[in-house]
Design a protein around this nucleic acid. Structure first.
Length: 466
RNA sequence: GGCGGCAUAGCCAAGUGGUAAGGCAGCGGCCUGCAAAGCCGUUAUUCGGCGGUUCGAAUCCGCCUGCCGCCUCCA
């Protein structure tokens, strides 16, 4: 089976071929940990999870590196010395280091709740300062840098293929359209590799460097870390679509300028989650929803978001609405109920291996076509509606779940009922035996109010948490 | 201004030349003491608008309308 992936570099779907035969190097841009991730951020990590699981499903081993940006980028060229982490620290009365540690944990909890597989390697920007400095020094030796009063900058005019990824027309760039421009920059697209700590200011995060005390620029960490951990396996680099024009363009420029070799063969970008009115979800827009407040606190299983995300292709903007989430929530619950029903009918599932080969091939065709999850989800429905034996269906579903990540094999693990719920269930059983329907219905309502489902089946009454 | 994207049923959406996937909601039925769950069936003569190319277009071309992203950090 071949995997086709849309490569932003060529703007076409290409047949994926890793540098090594069976092991893929994957780098995914991680969060800046100065606040909670919002569900729009999380959409991108879900896309990357599907990418990784699809590669694994195809028999590849994936060496996955994700960075944690725990040093603040400046909020703008002119905000001398103020960055998001230090600002967050001020806001919350903690140190920048505490802020970073706190939101790193929060992020890791979020991805765990979404069943996103952990990367092979987590790496922190602050742990690779020496590598970043070394990279900047190489660039300096090769003549790609220049000093300004506030830092060391990369001269993009020296890198001929600067717009390879962005396909921008540099003459038409409107520098300073939204922010005051830095008069010392030689070209509008030049960017800082190293920033000096402002005079008279003691930053919480600053390091010595050959150029003076300061902190790394906005893009250098990803170059340094991907080269450090993936070396000669620079296969796929992912991030949000907003990274194409600036962050990834600059990463390519500085990396290739330093090494003289191509940086990553595949660049993949996830589209935004948008909300009513078509606006992106963003911290700066003040419309951001976290997994915590939009799902966990609403008693909605976070996996409903996973389900929802798979109903839209990763390269298309996804409409967020309460109705859409309600639909996904119901869809996931329905799927789990179907699995429960199958489990009751199924015989030896293990004997079925990975299930039905025909459906497996169909499923694989879809995920291998640039991760077409909406179609893969349709294949799941087709399988469910087919007249295959329950054990075969279930084995096939469990196999698909290696990619889907809905924990379908776990739905049968019914937890023990709390004592009072169990007592009500017992009383209701007696009421039914007495044909006291009024009492029976009252008890059913009471149990359901507590979040449990009551089902009277031919095999007896079942009470469980949905 | 440049680059890029979006517009398909009540909602979320797939589909890039061959006559509209799938999910949710709704409706009808089976089952049930009634439900729930499950199952079966059903729901767009039509794809933002107007032209054009073609035997044939949601899909290609032109024009128009509306919306959005990036060009500052941002998934």
């Amino acid at each position: 089976m071949t995997v086709k992936l849309y490569n932003t570099l060529s703007r076409t779907k290409e047949i994926f071929k890793p540098i090594r035969a069976r092991e893929v190097g994957l780098y995914t841009c991680g969060p800046t940990v100065y606040n909670y991730a919002h569900i729009g951020n999380l959409r991108t990590y879900l896309f990357e999870d599907i990418l990784k699981r699809t590669l694994v499903y195809n028999g590849y081993t994936v060496k996955h590196v994700m960075n944690i940006t725990d040093v603040g980028h400046l909020t703008g060229d002119r905000d001398m010395g103020e960055d998001k982490l230090e600002k967050g620290a001020q806001r919350e009365g903690k140190t920048a280091w505490e802020i970073a540690a706190y939101y790193t944990r929060a992020f890791q909890k979020d991805i765990e709740r979404l069943n996103i597989l952990d990367p092979t390697i987590w790496c922190k920007a602050t742990d690779t300062i020496p590598e970043q400095i070394a990279l900047i020094r190489t660039l300096e030796e090769k003549g790609f840098t220049y000093h300004t009063r506030d830092g060391i900058y990369f001269d993009t005019a020296r890198f001929p293929d600067y717009t390879r990824l962005s396909h921008q027309n540099l003459d038409a760039l409107q520098e300073g359209a939204r922010v005051e421009k830095n008069p010392e920059k030689r070209n509008a697209t030049d960017f800082a590799l190293w920033k000096f700590s402002p005079e008279g200011v003691q930053r919480q995060m600053e390091w010595d460097s050959p150029w003076g005390v300061g902190f790394p620029g906005w893009h250098i960490e990803c170059s340094a870390m991907s080269m450090k951990y993936l070396r000669d396996q620079l296969d796929i680099h992912c991030g949000g679509t907003d990274h194409i024009d600036v962050h990834h363009t600059n990463e390519i420029a500085q990396s290739e300028a330093a090494t003289g070799k191509p940086f990553f063969n595949f660049w993949m970008h996830g589209a935004f989650l948008i909300i009513a009115g078509g606006k992106k979800m963003a911290k700066s827009e003040g419309n951001f929803l976290t997994l915590e407040n939009a799902f966990v606190n609403q008693a909605i299983d976070p996996l409903a978001y996973r389900f929802a995300a798979f109903l839209t292709h990763y390269r298309k903007p996804m409409e967020y609405s309460a109705d859409a989430i309600e639909g996904a929530r119901n869809g996931l619950q329905h799927l789990r109920n179907q699995v429960r029903t199958l489990q009751e009918k199924a015989g030896d599932i293990a004997a079925q291996g990975t299930g039905n080969a025909e459906f497996r091939a169909k499923f694989m065709t879809e995920i291998n076509d640039d991760l077409n999850m909406p179609r893969a989800m349709a294949v799941v429905q087709e399988l469910l509606k087919s007249d295959l034996d329950a054990s075969v269906k279930l084995a096939t579903l469990y196999d698909f779940d290696n990619v889907l990540g809905f924990d379908l094999a776990q739905v049968d693990q019914e937890e023990k009922l709390p004592e009072d719920i169990q007592r009500m269930a017992d009383e209701r059983l007696q009421a039914r035996a007495d044909k006291n329907w009024a009492l029976s219905d009252e008890l059913r309502d009471a149990i359901q109010d507590r979040g449990y489902l009551v089902q009277d089946t031919p095999q007896g009454t079942k009470v469980f948490k949905p």
